[in-house]
Design a protein around this nucleic acid. Structure first.
Lengths: 203, 203
DNA sequence: GAACATACGTACCGATCGGTAACACTGTCA
DNA sequence: TGACAGTGTTACCGATCGGTACGTATGTTC
């Protein structure tokens, strides 16, 4: 019971910086980073512009923070799709893909915030791009690991192939509802089976 | 020989509108549409702003024109990859994918201008988006036709699967050089063979 | 040469962009 | 009580944004 320097036991009213992160996250994801002005962000957050610039050196750095948050929230969705563990690599990947396939054919879907950022900012020196590139590099590595666990003859081909399918679903999902992402589960199953020597399922 | 009202038989010095189309095309593709201002475009084209607005009602319409040009130039690359005809659907698609795989792992690659535009403009009412969505719809349809020609058991799955691989290569190719697009040819071959009942190649 | 249409340039518009200076207010902690 | 950190308020900055009013050069047609 020493409450040394804890401010309060209840939630201490969200800090301005947090409110900004939340509203930036929503607006950046839905409308794109370049399309959203800092005034929009602070208005939605119910704070003022100086508060933004006290917490973030620039809009570019806020964008990088948004992508860091996005990256952090991505991994649980990927490693424990549906909020639970799966018995093996194949089941885990297919569970993630099943959920992605459902999300990505719905109206209003906006794909992956990190991939979208690399489209908006081709310049490799942009702070937001560094976050996105690092994320994609890690995802690629992880998919190759999972492909190896599945017993792929060439884990690079299966890992990369799955990554292409994922990214394809991210981007086509935001082009129009009911797009080719509806077939990602079947395609991924077929690809995995063919790369791991399973008897070809009649498809 | 009635040259009724033909201006001149020789090339009459490129019109301002054409110069604008060319420079807009280069800048929009390399840097993104939102990132490029109209001043940049007219400077590069060596013309002035009113010339732009005499030829195009707005920047948005210029963006739509850029995408129309992009769409028109895409189809020959897709239907006759390498500048020549191919014996069957499988060979044609794989030839396109082979070329794509080479381009998409190089430094400076910027993916598909039409896909990039849908990322930059989520609003379905934007004039540029209409062009991009129509293109993607046509490509999807064409890939399903080609999948059927290949003898796929379910042409929708193979067509959509190939489209996901293509789009995946477009977007990952611009994230960093040497990305997963390097495996697109192997992945596509595997997927096609598995979907058409070919004996699984050792991969 | 007069009349006209086409094409282009100079100069400018209001709005919005990202970002900042200066100061008042509030609550916490010592 | 006083110091301090965090926030809000107001007003502002220069740069750039997309877009336009208006005059000028050129060539064709009679």
């Amino acid at each position: 019971m020493s409450r040394i320097s804890k401010p309060r036991d209840a939630a201490p009213a969200p800090r301005a910086a947090d409110r900004i992160r939340v509203s930036a996250r929503e607006l950046f994801y839905r409308e794109g980073i370049r399309a959203v002005g800092v005034d929009q962000i602070v208005n939605r957050a119910g704070v003022t512009k100086p508060s933004l610039y006290r917490a973030f050196p620039s809009k570019d750095d806020l964008a990088a923070a948004y992508l860091s948050d996005y990256d952090r929230e991505f991994w649980p969705r990927f490693e424990k799709p549906g909020g639970r563990r799966w018995p093996d690599a194949r089941a885990q990947v297919l569970a993630y893909i099943r959920e992605l396939g459902k999300r990505a054919v719905q109206d209003g879907y906006r794909g992956c915030g990190l991939s979208n950022a690399t489209v908006e900012y081709p310049d490799h020196t942009h702070p937001a791009r560094g976050v996105a590139e690092a994320h994609k590099k890690a995802l690629r590595k992880r998919l190759r690991e999972l492909a190896a666990e599945m017993g792929a003859r060439d884990p690079r081909v299966l890992g990369d192939g799955l990554m292409l399918l994922l990214e394809g679903a991210y981007v086509t999902g935001q082009q129009s509802p009911g797009g080719p992402a509806q077939s990602i589960l079947a395609a991924a199953e077929t690809l995995i089976d063919a790369c791991t020597g399973k008897p070809a399922r009649r498809r």
